[in-house]
C-alpha cells in the first residue's frame, strides 16, 4: 500500500516536473498544479498511512485511543491545498495577462524584462541622441 502510494506520488511529481520544463506557459501552470498536488500527497504519507480510526478523544479519556489516524498532516494538507489553489489561480491569472499584454505564451519569445544582448549594447557613442 505504502509502495503503491509512493509510486503514484512519484509519477505525479514526474509529470509535474516534465510539464514545468516546457516552454509553454499553460503547460507550466499545469505542471505547478500537479506538482503541488503531489507534494500534498507526500505530506499525507509523512503522517503514516494505515490507521482509519478518527482521532477523537472518547468521553472521559485524556488522550486518543491507540491506532487512531494522525490529525496533524491532515491539517497541514488542508492548509497546503488552499495555498496551492491560490498560487495556481494567481499563476493562471499571470499567464492570461501575459497572453493579453505580450501576445505570446512561448517563454523564448518573452524578452520584455530581460532584453537580449543585441538590444542592450555597451556604452553609447557620444553622438547618440535619444
Amino acid at each position: 500500500m505504502n509502495l503503491l502510494y509512493a509510486l503514484a506520488t512519484a509519477i505525479l511529481c514526474g509529470i509535474g516536473l516534465y510539464l514545468m520544463l516546457s516552454r509553454h506557459l499553460v503547460r507550466m501552470a499545469l505542471g505547478v498544479s500537479l506538482l503541488s498536488a503531489a507534494i500534498n500527497l507526500v505530506i499525507l504519507q509523512a503522517g503514516r498511512l494505515g490507521a482509519v480510526l478518527p482521532p477523537l478523544v472518547a468521553e472521559g479519556a485524556a488522550t486518543v485511543a491507540a491506532g487512531t489516524a494522525n490529525p496533524v498532516p491532515q491539517a497541514l494538507v488542508l492548509t497546503a491545498i488552499v495555498i496551492g489553489l491560490a498560487l495556481v489561480a494567481l499563476f493562471a491569472a499571470l499567464v492570461l495577462a501575459a497572453w493579453i499584454k505580450l501576445g505570446t505564451l512561448d517563454t523564448r519569445a518573452m524578452r520584455a524584462a530581460e532584453p537580449t544582448a543585441a538590444a542592450e549594447p555597451g556604452p553609447a557613442p557620444d553622438a547618440v541622441k535619444p
Partner: peptide
C-alpha cells in the same frame, strides 16, 4: 506593464 508581467512570471515560476 508588459515588462512587469514578464518579470512577475519569471519571479513566480
Amino acid at each position: 506593464r508588459p515588462t512587469q508581467i514578464d518579470g512577475a512570471i519569471r519571479y513566480a515560476l
